[in-house]
């Protein structure tokens, strides 16, 4: 991204000049207070929003109206609200939607759906209607719909919100093993600490810090400026257990 600015039609400025470059295979955390512009950045990378000013490139492609198909073939975006992602009658059909659009043969579609659901521990949900799942189940399935696309670049918006500890742990482990580029926007700083080497700190539509996750997320002054706190793990436990 080079000098990207983005203003919504109603005049609110979401991004006020964002610059960064992410190389292949990097895992990057995107942190910042509510409304800092995390979701907006991810939506730009997937070409859902087009920058009002500046340039967004994905691989060799500048993101513009004419390159959307190429860009989206590489990028998989998991939306912040899983309800936006799920729209088919059953979980299986929802996960199969992307592969079917890639015109894959049915046996391969089925295999991809199976794999993707297994990755998020949701094999048993296949025949359930998406609208009738719990919040965390929906999030897991939303992630599976994108995994089934085999994207080169994975964009996750708040992937751990509402997940139970086991599922969250599995997500973290899985994120660590994903070999392609991944960008994770999250308030779960412990998740970022565990799964991202590099972090961008965002405040009011600008990037205020960019560097190794460990050094940024241990910098209490920086985090405070961004409206954040130290990851829980680094806060020390204020409650001492009774003996």
């Amino acid at each position: 991204m080079r000098g990207v600015r983005f203003t919504f039609p109603d005049g609110s400025e979401a991004l006020r000049g964002v610059d960064f470059t992410i190389h292949h295979g990097e895992s990057v955390g995107l942190v910042g207070a509510n409304g800092a512009g995390k979701s907006s950045i991810l939506l730009h990378l997937a070409g859902v929003y087009l920058a009002s000013e500046g340039e967004v490139r994905v691989g060799d492609w500048p993101v513009s109206r004419s390159t959307l198909v190429e860009v989206r073939r590489r990028v998989g975006l998991v939306f912040q609200d899983p309800d936006d992602q799920l729209f088919m009658p059953t979980v299986f059909q929802d996960v199969a939607f992307g592969p079917a659009n890639q015109h894959l043969p049915p046996p391969e579609i089925e295999q991809r759906v199976g794999e993707a659901l297994a990755h998020v521990g949701a094999e048993h949900l296949g025949q359930r209607p998406s609208h009738r799942l719990s919040g965390g189940e929906r999030r897991a399935v939303a992630l599976a719909t994108v995994l089934a696309l085999h994207p080169d670049i994975l964009l996750l918006d708040e992937p751990s919100a509402g997940l139970d500890p086991m599922t969250r742990r599995r997500l973290i482990r899985w994120l660590g093993s994903f070999e392609h580029t991944r960008i994770v926007a999250s308030h779960d700083l412990d998740l970022v600490l565990d799964s991202c080497e590099r972090t961008l700190v965002l405040a009011a539509g600008r990037i205020i810090a960019d560097g190794p996750t460990w050094s940024l997320l241990t910098d209490a002054a920086l985090l405070e400026r961004a409206g954040l706190e130290l990851p829980l793990r680094l806060q020390g436990s204020p409650v001492t257990p009774h003996r």
Binding site: V75, L77, V146, L149
Partner: peptide, 13 residues
């Protein structure tokens, strides 16, 4: 609009 965007992101043509 958001659902449509999600569909486009997954290659809906």
């Amino acid at each position: 609009e958001r659902v449509h965007a999600a569909m486009l992101c997954r290659g809906f043509a």
